[in-house]
């Protein structure tokens, strides 16, 4: 009985991840053959699941949300690139077969056009107007068919206190949607990943808006702009 009590004590430590590896394995073996301790383990795991809720919610820095979403956008992009690389031999095989079977056929023409369209396209981002972004520059890299675009900026001045840069994409200056807010680093640079398919966008514009969340619509003329065509 006393031995079983000792094991029950170890079950609690096991649940909390507080055992050394060799003892953890011993508890795991015991749990497989002891319904009482297995029930104790289930009870205590449920109890442990509640402990994190004792902590006070703390307002996370606003940039953290953007960091997470940017990271996910990069992961999605890299997965697609991997997928493309894995599929590429079969595409080539298909193309080769098409050449052999129907050289100069319309089918081959269409496939080649598709491959060409899959190429990333780069457009310069230029400062315009006289609102303090002179000297800033960058580029936007659009990957057609993929909901991701890269924006690289340099020599950006810091926006006034309490304000942020906001990126807009759309068909024209009158028809844009917000694509995110950001602040440049100390050197005036920033690399951003946008979770947007810019295939149909005609321009990308950057304005300075009230922080930390930006504006629903641009409140000033663009300071930088890229024409995506």
């Amino acid at each position: 009985m006393a031995e079983h009590q000792l094991m029950a004590d170890s079950v609690a430590a096991y649940v909390m991840g507080g055992l050394e590896p060799e003892e953890e394995e011993a508890v795991r073996r015991h749990l497989r053959g002891c319904p009482d301790c297995a029930a104790l383990e289930r009870r205590l795991r449920g109890t442990m699941a509640l402990l994190p809720f004792a902590v006070e919610e703390r307002t996370a820095p606003p940039r953290l949300r953007g960091r997470i979403l940017s990271r996910l956008a990069m992961e999605r992009s890299s997965r697609r690139h991997l997928s493309f690389r894995l599929q590429r031999p079969s595409l080539i095989a298909v193309l080769a077969a098409a050449v052999l079977l129907a050289a100069w056929s319309g089918f081959l023409t269409v496939r080649v056009q598709q491959l060409q369209q899959a190429q990333a396209r780069s457009y310069p981002i230029l400062a315009i107007g006289a609102q303090g972004a002179d000297g800033a520059e960058g580029q936007v890299v659009v990957m057609p068919g993929q909901e991701v675009a890269l924006v690289e900026l340099q020599h950006l001045p810091s926006p006034p206190p309490g304000r942020v840069y906001e990126i807009w994409v759309g068909a024209s200056l009158e028809d844009v949607r917000g694509a995110g807010v950001f602040l440049p680093d100390a050197a005036g640079s920033r690399l951003l990943v946008l979770s947007h398919d810019l295939s149909d966008a005609r321009l990308l514009a950057i304005t300075v808006e009230p922080g930390p969340d930006g504006s629903p619509r641009p409140t000033e003329p663009p300071r930088l702009i890229a024409h995506l065509a």
């Binding site: 000792l6 029950a8 909390m16 205590l44």
Partner: peptide, 16 residues
Amino acid sequence: LGTVKSRLRLGMEKLH
């Protein structure tokens, strides 16, 4: 060590 484990189990069971 045994005291730590015992307190941990007792505490967790009381929480439960």
